[in-house]
Design a protein around this nucleic acid. Structure first.
Lengths: 133, 133
DNA sequence: ACAATTGTACGAATGCTTTCGTAAAAAGAA
DNA sequence: TTCTTTTTACGAAAGCATTCGTACAATTGT
């Protein structure tokens, strides 16, 4: 049985997952080059991280070719959801409202995006009236 | 000059800050008792943490009485904002929208709260039209 | 006064993340 | 083939957060 623990990636692991989510399956070299754009990172450092992430089942790898190809084994959405739940809990004591208010209040949001949120609000309202039936 | 670094509290430090924010200035013993409600924690463990947080200027302390009184040296709001910025960046690649959508979509929000958000949306819209003048 | 309790200070052990040096295998170039 | 480059694997060092043992000072109770 593979260990399928719902793990919390570390900061660096998340950085690497972002690269894999954005670019799809990649070699160590590619990941390292991307990572180096943000901060100077040794090749074996990236390699080691990917190996550890593989052990934790955060990524899978194809060992067919000599250069192994790594890819994310968790989706961006589920990871974001997991981290959001945790963050909400620890930082905002569970109040999604407070978090949303702060996020909207302090970050540029385009009229278009505001509109999308408005739609979501309407949908949530409809759902909650239906829930009573 | 006091060192006033804009620090990122660790998980445990945040846990303690929450206690101080909720209950105001407190003794080590009180903090430890609150903390123990969540997870068994030794007294000197709490003490050490508070001492470290004091060095980092996350808390201040009144040493008048034998039992020192600790209090948060950072506000809940500024800390939440700082952590939110960081979280948004690392987990949602800066998209406040995506975060808000996920937060609203997956956590119970009361009609009353939805209403508050609606008000904020209207206010944001007004502000952005005024910004053109 | 003296013992027990409560408190602070501090160093060290543990555990986890991140970085890096080095060895050895595989592939490519001359 | 032989030398160089690229790659994987692995162990160990360095850094940080957390926990805990212990020493010792201040206070309280008898």
């Amino acid at each position: 049985m593979e260990n399928n623990a719902p793990l919390k990636p570390t900061d660096t692991e998340l950085e690497i997952l972002q690269i894999l989510w954005q670019h799809g399956p990649s070699t160590v070299r590619f990941v390292n080059e991307e990572q180096s754009k943000l901060k100077e990172t040794g090749y074996t450092t990236t390699l080691k991280l990917l190996q550890i992430m593989h052990e934790k089942n955060l990524v899978s790898r194809d060992e067919e070719a000599r250069s192994h190809i790594y890819q994310a084994a968790v989706t961006e959405e589920e990871t974001q959801q997991r981290l959001l739940d945790r963050f909400l809990d620890t930082t905002f004591r569970g109040s999604a409202m407070k978090l949303v208010m702060q996020a909207l209040g302090n970050h540029r949001t385009t009229p278009d995006e505001l509109d999308q949120i408005r739609h979501l609000l309407k949908k949530l309202e409809d759902d909650s009236s239906n829930a009573a039936s």
